[in-house]
Design a protein around this nucleic acid. Structure first.
Lengths: 212, 212, 212, 212
DNA sequence: TATGAATGAGAATTCATTCAT
DNA sequence: CATGAATGAATTCTCATTCAT
């Protein structure tokens, strides 16, 4: 029997998406059960299958969706300038904002690669690689222009990305440190890290206006 | 009936430990099954229970063991000097070496916190915190002594630790970059990051002699 | 919202009937799903319930319909003669023709008795029994008249019926053997079987004119 | 917890085999549930998986086992004579005995081909074909030697086999007709069918002594 | 006439765990 | 020290069926 009278597929779909992200982030994909997910959305477990064909496909879709969103957003908000220093600042701002705002999606996308079938993993990794390339590109340009001092821009991009993404594991919106302060500090750390002194030389303004 | 005549409990125990670490790193704790673990060690699933009381206790023990090892090792190899810059270089060397050598243990300890019961998680987190404090201490001392320039040493310690630990996700022993080179580059990145120029001012030699 | 504007209930009903017969013959009643059936007819599963009250009732109706058809057809095409030999020839012709033409219905009616509730099974078995009685009657008359030589006409009727019905499991319309030839051979086999020599003494013509 | 103290794998395995054959014959493979099967053997459903890797493999094994048994038994009990008539009588005796004795296995092997995956079906059909070839061989030899009169021995073999196998659908050990009588009648029917008069010319004795 | 959202029961299968031997 | 038979609870997933729209 159809329980909910005015039930709406699109609304349910979105509810499942959100609950799934939260649950996977909490417990891990393998540990999360469809019972639990269904319970949170107010459905019977079997009803979930109207919205995705298997637990695994659901994970893949969530991950691809998130990574695609990141790429699209960066396209949208990236500054028009070609100046590596300014672009780097914008990237730091963008990354920290998006990774604290969509903290659970990030967590899932980073932690659950193992749960993917090889073919799916390849697709996800490919998208992630494209995101990494954004930063690597900025660093490379900066090294060439003399703005940054780095022996190997790709390695540095790994280092900077790890540093930035790590914020998600400890930062707390309600905590002692505000997001503005957080971004400023990380901007300084990153600029120092890539060998671009002095600090505070890049305007935080643009990213503030357009960030997600 | 005992299968292997001269079978040795201690040897079996160690074999299980290693297989478990590898398996958990590969598949994740929840996804790994005791059947599979038993299979890799050449036992029947039930026989594993001679060596640990439950799947969950096994994980806790593996994690505590690893973190305790890290702390003990650092105690053993840390330089006697009080100079923050030298100590930081030694820490970078130590961390990267231990985290590439015992890569799977690191991975497990970082990824499987979720699978722990709250009480166990607290114990593990406490140990990890002590390790983080090592770095935070070095950075704090450096800021005080004027060797480093950082607004908030605790935050910087998170940043540096994330950066260093991230190495484990991409570094490949058989790859293009050697471990010596890797450490040198990360040393430079870290020193720049904490605002301690110029580069290459700290000797890599000591860590080579004493690393784990 | 009705999907197809000028959609026609009767047409849909017949489409379901045919698709159901084909599907049950392919997969078996239990293995067939209403989703699949609906898919083949271009409907949603729920829509099937406009046409029958349950999956089980559908099966019963299909089976009764088929058996009733067989009985009606035989009434229509049976020869007027009382000669057992001629009647037997006509029956062989009729049975093989109907059982190769409506092969799937036959298959379903023979294989899916198990899927019926006891009460339904009784109704179906009763109809089938009436069909078996047709042959048993012919054989009995033949034995009495001396045309056939059989110790027990009922047993012989089982034997002959099994033999004839078995055709459905191997005969292929597109194969090496034509239907005319097939019927001739089985006619000979049956006549020999019931001890009515010599062969080819009964004209195949009548059944050709009136067969279904 | 292991419930049954002196539980014995081999005994359990055989119990499952028998219960499975009976249940599949009763309800059909798709309709039978492992819950039910386990219940009949006094196990939990999951425990069945110690004995076969999936419901489908179980079916395949049961079918292959039965067909192989038939072939082996015929090898064992077939008469040494080359006389087609005698061999045919022996085959009728053997077939009816084995098909009434192992009635459920026969039923399963004949009805559940549909439930098999294509590759498995091929293996089963291949074995069944070898059994059919036994009869086709006898009929062919008889036609050549002039003992039988048949237009197409292969078609006749289908007819005879269907006739004989059909016994399983109605014969009842406790019924009006005894097995000796049954075999005699079918022997007569078959001999007449293949055009080998007069009746009772082949001794039933040998098969009686050695039948399964 | 048909859809589409949902149910609830039950399917096969897996798994950590137990314990007599 | 180790096996092997078994448990029992849970898991993902499927399916016939219902009914507001």
């Amino acid at each position: 029997m159809p329980r909910t009278a005015g039930s709406d597929g699109a609304r349910t779909h979105e509810a499942i998406r959100q609950a799934a992200i939260a649950l996977i982030a909490e417990r891990g994909f393998e540990a999360m059960t469809l019972r639990e997910l269904a319970g949170r959305v107010g459905l019977q477990p079997g009803s979930l299958y109207r919205y995705f064909p298997s637990k695994n496909r659901m994970l893949v879709e969530l991950m691809l969706e998130h990574l695609q969103f990141l790429l699209d957003e960066w396209q949208r908000v990236q500054p028009e300038t070609a100046d590596p220093r300014e672009r780097l600042c914008a990237f730091v701002d963008f990354h920290i904002r998006s990774h604290t705002l969509r903290r659970q999606e990030v967590f899932v996308a980073n932690m659950e690669l193992r749960s993917l079938a090889p073919a799916d993993r390849r697709r996800v990794v490919a998208l992630r690689r494209r995101y990494e390339d954004v930063l690597a590109g900025i660093l490379g340009a900066g090294v060439e222009s003399g703005a940054f001092h780095l022996p190997d821009p790709r390695i540095a991009s790994f280092a900077v990305l790890a540093m930035l993404t790590g914020v998600g594991t400890w930062f707390n919106d309600a905590g002692r440190i505000g997001k503005r302060d957080l971004i400023d500090q990380y901007t300084q750390l990153v600029l120092q890290c890539v060998g671009s002194a002095p600090v505070n030389a890049c305007a935080p303004a643009p990213s503030q206006r357009r960030s997600p």
